[in-house]
Design a protein around this nucleic acid. Structure first.
Lengths: 204, 204
DNA sequence: CGAGAAGTTGAAGCGTGTCAAATGCAGTGG
DNA sequence: CCACTGCATTTGACACGCTTCAACTTCTCG
């Protein structure tokens, strides 16, 4: 799905790795979010006449296509659905704010550490961590576009993380031996990912 | 309102300038969003047990405080309200994505130009531009925290924008003589701010 | 009129980008 | 099974945009 397009359906991400991205007129490209397996659900709807960003698959992607009219009917039939979607979107904004902070204030090393922490936790909560490791299909170019660094520099920083024993990453497999140390380095706090089960305001 | 707190009420921004910000453990600070007069409405709700970010006033702020129970009741009574809030939040994410792009990919000069375009348009739509100018209470430090630059560098870039005749900014007043040229420089596109009145998906 | 906040200036340093080439790896066809 | 191809990763040398630090000036407001 490209920037500027008007999507024909609403989409619900079911499985696979993907990303949202934005580009500048001259081609500079920023990945602004990832989908990973295990994400509860990421609804992709159009609030605009044109998409303000693009969506790309990283691995083959399983998505649910929903007709706009059906979607609309669903919202009418299930009065609580809109609230749930709203709440979901509140989480999305929180994540996006964290990303703004990430590229804005953290050093190259911290940025990578932070993104790895986030992805790792999301995969973990979805049950995708086995023996402390997981599939990790992102290339260094992907990581570069998500962290606003050059692929060359991502490479060097990953080497440093490996040297420090903070990550093992090879052949599209990622292991994090000591997540707490990595969180520490990244200044990572999982607040922003977890809509508290105990938040009183927004019953689903 | 501080990061980590649990707000007692829901808040609706009515008037005045304010910002949302996030900080790192060592004090580095990022402004992740501004409120400006004329914004249709910005609801401040808690989706988390703790706030993932702080909110600060820049000018005196007029806000509506809403009791959580009242808010909840309101959501029940007005089935379409949740949809509206959802839609509103979709705009917020879009704006936040643009900010991620801004600090991630644009040069210092472009970043400033972009943020000025955004604020100027939002003020304009709210009817706050008179004779091509408006009150502009942000300091260079504020702009620095929003653009992830140092105040010193913001200063130099603002001078360059002035030298090029792209902005006039003094005594807390901002004028943009030729918005199109500034947009051009910034790579600005207002897609992300305007939920199309003609978007079919999300009737309010 | 005085004091603190905001804005301005210059010189020097550093984190990350740029460029260019080499190496490794996976899939494909002969 | 191996040569071939294209993409991903790695390495080194050098460049530059932005930061840092520190001092000075100008505003704002009690």
């Amino acid at each position: 799905m490209r920037e500027g397009e008007r999507p024909e359906f609403a989409y619900l991400m079911i499985d696979g790795w993907g990303c949202r991205y934005k580009t500048l007129p001259d081609g500079r490209r920023q990945i602004v979010a990832f989908f990973v397996p295990g994400d509860r659900f990421d609804v992709n709807v159009m609030a605009f006449k044109e998409m303000d960003h693009g969506v790309a698959a990283i691995t083959p992607l399983k998505v649910l296509e929903i007709d706009w009219d059906d979607f609309d009917r669903l919202l009418d039939e299930r009065p609580k659905l809109a609230r749930t979607l709203w709440r979901q979107e509140l989480v999305s904004v929180a994540v996006q704010r964290e990303w703004t902070l990430n590229v804005g204030q953290r050093s190259a090393l911290e940025r990578l550490a932070h993104i790895l922490c986030e992805l790792y936790l999301r995969l973990d909560w979805g049950g995708y961590i086995k023996n402390g490791g997981c599939r990790f299909p992102l290339t260094q170019v992907d990581l570069a576009e998500a962290t606003s660094l050059t692929p060359v520099h991502v490479n060097r920083m990953l080497q440093e993380l490996r040297r420090e024993g903070l990550i093992e990453l090879q052949h599209r497999m990622l292991t994090i031996p000591d997540l707490d140390r990595l969180k520490q380095l990244a200044g990572f706090n999982d607040h922003y990912l977890r809509p508290g089960a105990d938040a009183p305001a927004l019953p689903t």
